[in-house]
Write a protein that binds this DNA or RNA. Structure first.
Lengths: 151, 151
DNA sequence: TATTGTTATACTCTATAACTATA
DNA sequence: TATAGTTATAGAGTATAACAATA
């Protein structure tokens, strides 16, 4: 089995290269990994950050509504909101007997500012090669494709 | 606690709307879900399909190389390749004492054609709103951003 | 000494089902 | 009868470590 170590083209044929879905997923994974690293110093992950910013922008929202907005199931929202509340970043006020209105605490506000800043830095690092117009176009194109793809 | 059911703007503020990463991930998730459904009748998931097509395009490749190409760890390639081999879609021939060259079997070839057809239909369904030039541009833009974002 | 393949294992995400209490 | 929240649990997908065999 001793062989002179094959021609070694070393460059593989990539049969997925023509697929938009392939590039989309590959980029998305890399972006989310970078976002995770950007938020880690705050002891938050991307889901935590989405919850905090969504509540900050919609004070009084319920956790079910947050879940619908960011694509997290009701069942998985409970521990998420619970942990953020225990850390003193969220405050809960009863709306009726079953739901509670969520608000960002004073401490949470400061964290939200940190989060927003880190996300902005992250986006600039990854998408800074595009100018503002190109970024807006890309965001809109992605959103349009998302809406067009039913669910 | 009886209240006249709040103003109900019903449209939430979306503080993530200006983020490319947000739209990227949201679209990627929806696209992968649709791809999964498209391949399910063949009893294959997107990872299986990537393995098959990568081997078909690179006959004799080893499983480590396939893993590197599609972003799956060595440790997770073993069960994947094992299952496809048991189903008779792959053939393994020893290269040296430790690696084996992977090839698509006769039965696997037919499955690859089915896979390619289903992926094409899926891509046309999701990205058909864009003409060929726009699709090519988008794919290239996503690839360029992926390369620019180190790892 | 580095590499291939393998196993075991753990952690995160996501998903379903079942339950309570409330509306 | 439907909804909000909770809990338990199961399944992917992904990650690390350790090992044997081989280069």
């Amino acid at each position: 089995m001793t062989r002179p170590k094959a021609p070694e083209t070393s460059v593989l044929a990539d049969p997925l290269d023509h697929l938009i879905g392939y590039h989309l997923r590959r980029l998305s994974v890399r972006v989310m990994t970078d976002l995770g690293r950007s938020l880690a110093p705050l002891d938050l992950n991307p889901a935590d950050a989405s919850v905090l910013l969504t509540i900050e922008a919609n004070p009084g929202i319920t956790q079910s509504e947050v879940g619908k907005a960011i694509g997290v199931l009701r069942a998985n929202m409970a521990p998420l909101v619970g942990a953020l509340t225990e850390r003193g970043l969220l405050e809960q006020a009863p709306v009726d007997g079953r739901s509670t209105a969520l608000r960002i605490s004073g401490k949470g506000k400061a964290v939200c500012r940190e989060v927003a800043e880190r996300i902005a830095t992250h986006e600039n690092r990854l998408f800074g090669a595009l100018d503002a117009a190109a970024r807006k176009r890309l965001a809109q194109e992605l959103q349009a494709l998302w809406q067009a793809a039913a669910a």
